[in-house]
């Protein structure tokens, strides 16, 4: 009996030790460059990319080539697939999503429109989104459960559009006096970034504030945020060209990446997001590429 007890306690100790070593080594694992999505495969540089859309179902990345007026797709391994120009009709595309009906929605800055691209029907339709008499200035996009979430640059609020493109609801952040500049939809609500007040907020699906924290001590010019698999908040600093990481309560954890032009460095980054394969994707407007980092 004593022998069994000893065996059990030793096994438990070993298991705890293995777990601790494993978690320690996981925590210490630094972010490293994995892949670059650039214009090499398409024979033309990506000129000022502004957004990335990740299609988990098709296992593809779509880079919005804002200066080249095209959408460039890559496999999940980072290999170039296709450059889609929408019959040369796009005017400064800025962000994109794909809905459940396979329609691609693109924010076009040149037309101030939310443009629908139905590839099967070969139909490209620009839409000026209005709420009453006021025209929205579409900025960032996301899509969930049949609703298109459009960040309105004019008000810094998120408009919820139905399939008829009418504004069904607004999500505004009373705690963000300067408005929202980026947001991410998660299972537990909406995470949003207030650039000028240097603040991260978590809102419920109904727009009610869940939590907020200041990032001003660590961040110079935040442009984008992403929520990591462990619930950490990653804030992209455009001018400092790095990423600052906070836990969900707002405690600063660490900063990584630096300004530069070589592989793995950032120059005028504009958006970050996590892909479903554990990669952290950084859209670099200044270096004309998207870099994927992994651990």
């Amino acid at each position: 009996m004593k022998y069994v007890k000893n065996m059990l306690s030793q096994s438990a100790l070993l298991a705890v030790s293995i777990f601790m070593v494993a978690t320690t080594s996981m925590a210490a694992e630094p972010w490293a460059w994995k892949a670059t999505l650039d214009g090499t495969g398409s024979g033309r540089v990506i000129d000022m990319p502004t957004a990335l859309y990740i299609d988990a179902e098709r296992q593809r990345y779509y880079v919005v080539d804002s200066g080249g007026n095209r959408l460039v797709s890559f496999s999940k391994e980072g290999n170039f697939l296709l450059a889609f120009t929408a019959e040369e009709k796009l005017q400064i595309p800025y962000d994109m999503i794909r809905d459940n009906a396979d329609v691609i929605w693109v924010v076009e800055r040149g037309r101030n429109s939310l443009t629908s691209i139905n590839i099967k029907a070969k139909e490209i339709l620009p839409h000026i989104i209005k709420d009453g008499q006021k025209a929205l200035v579409p900025d960032r996009l996301d899509y969930k459960d049949g609703i298109i979430y459009v960040l309105d640059k004019q008000t810094g609020q998120i408009a919820l559009l139905g399939s008829d493109l009418t504004v069904k609801n607004w999500i505004s952040c009373a705690e963000c006096p300067s408005g929202i500049v980026d947001f991410k939809l998660t299972n537990d609500g909406i995470w949003a970034l207030d650039q000028l007040d240097k603040k991260v907020v978590q809102l419920g699906a109904d727009g009610k504030l869940i939590r907020q924290f200041d990032i001003g001590q660590k961040v110079e010019f935040p442009v984008s945020l992403a929520i990591g698999p462990a619930g950490y908040v990653y804030v992209l600093d455009r001018h400092a060209a790095d990423i600052d990481v906070f836990d969900a309560q707002g405690s600063f954890k660490y900063t990584f990446l630096t300004k530069g032009w070589q592989r793995g460095a950032l120059y005028y980054p504009i958006e970050i997001l996590f892909d479903p394969w554990g990669g952290l994707c950084v859209v670099e407007e200044g270096n004309g590429r998207v870099e994927v980092f992994g651990r």
């Binding site: 000022m48 040149g110 200035v137 640059k153 810094g156 408005g179």
Partner: peptide, 8 residues
């Protein structure tokens, strides 16, 4: 109505 505006 440009890529980057000071509509802020």
């Amino acid at each position: 109505f440009t890529r980057h505006s000071h509509l802020t």
